[in-house]
């Protein structure tokens, strides 16, 4: 069994207005050295297999089909053995 942690973010070329709003708030709180805020979401799920590469392929297929929209989002997958 694996736990998959999937991070989905807007692609770098796309303006992230939520990230911008947070960045402005940070600036106004005097966090002058913090910038480049991007907001994404994290999805956790369990994969029922003992084969790491099969687990990776399955989660990748799920990302492409449903969990992320490649038109606007990029994703990364981290697998942890349970």
């Amino acid at each position: 069994m694996f736990k998959a942690i999937i991070t989905v973010k807007l692609r770098p070329s796309i303006l992230d207005p939520e990230g911008k709003a947070i960045e402005h708030a940070l600036q106004s709180l005097d966090f002058r050295q913090l910038s480049g805020v991007r907001v994404g979401k994290e999805i956790e799920l369990t994969v029922d297999t003992t084969d790491r590469s099969e687990a990776g392929d399955m989660v990748d297929a799920a990302c492409r089909k449903l969990l992320a929209n490649p038109v606007m989002e990029d994703y990364t997958i981290e697998l942890q053995e349970l």
Binding site: A21, V71, M72
Partner: peptide, 11 residues
Amino acid sequence: LPGALLRNRSL
């Protein structure tokens, strides 16, 4: 249809 509908610029 091509493309995607993102969060409004104004949020």
